[in-house]
Design a protein around this nucleic acid. Structure first.
Lengths: 111, 111
DNA sequence: TTATTATTTAAGTTGACACTAAATTAAGTG
DNA sequence: CACTTAATTTAGTGTCAACTTAAATAATAA
């Protein structure tokens, strides 16, 4: 799946599509209107994104609404992050430290 | 550059190469020995990675040592992260909050 | 049912890219 | 300089992915 999602985000238009559906669902044709390529081409891109687990479809009548699949992103980001990163690792550690503190204070409150 | 680095990490062998040079420098031939493709093929991959700013070369006699270029990764990760992510955003906020607290306490100490 | 709208699937073309083998460059060493 | 080692560049080939147009599917309305 990771392999597919990495492949998927390589194509610039697919990244543009992901941007478009990031905060709202859009139909295939609404997405297509933002590009100068044909509707079938967009449909094919959406298929790739869907098979990569990065978008999901919701059918409503003749329309199909595409939206971001956050779990897919999370998985991809986790992979890319764990792959090498430094700054991300430091961010994680900082967040975990914060989380630890939070939990400790919760424990105190609960006792 | 971002475009090139995204392109670069799409190829599975190139990600393998990045893994190999992650913690140590390696020569082109040392890298090639890990794969069953020809030396020129590896050389071409290294060129792509270098042009993407993800590896750097250090010449030493007839040998060329390849190593990870962390700034390139940082840039790529930042882009990929800022692109969409949630959990990463939350991590960032937590880290920034932490940073803010740290700075405030520094200010107090400095006065 | 016929027509309309929304979208996908199919078939075929083109260009990009990963590969190979052969030739070339680069930096020593005898 | 000739030779060796390390690696790259060049030229050519095959595969794959993104696009096109045309045909097919899906849901609904007249």
């Amino acid at each position: 799946m990771i392999e597919k999602s990495i492949q998927a985000i390589t194509e610039p238009r697919r990244r543009d599509i992901l941007h478009l559906v990031r905060d709202r669902e859009l139909t295939s044709s609404a997405i297509a209107s933002h590009f100068d390529i044909s509707a079938p081409a967009i449909s094919q891109h959406l298929k790739v994104l869907e098979e990569a687990g990065l978008v999901v479809v919701r059918r409503a009548g003749t329309k199909r609404f595409y939206g971001l699949r956050r779990e897919g992103f999370a998985e991809l980001m986790q992979y890319l992050g764990s792959f090498w990163d430094d700054s991300l690792l430091r961010l994680k550690e900082a967040a975990e430290e914060e989380e630890k503190k939070r939990r400790q204070s919760d424990d105190i409150h609960q006792q």
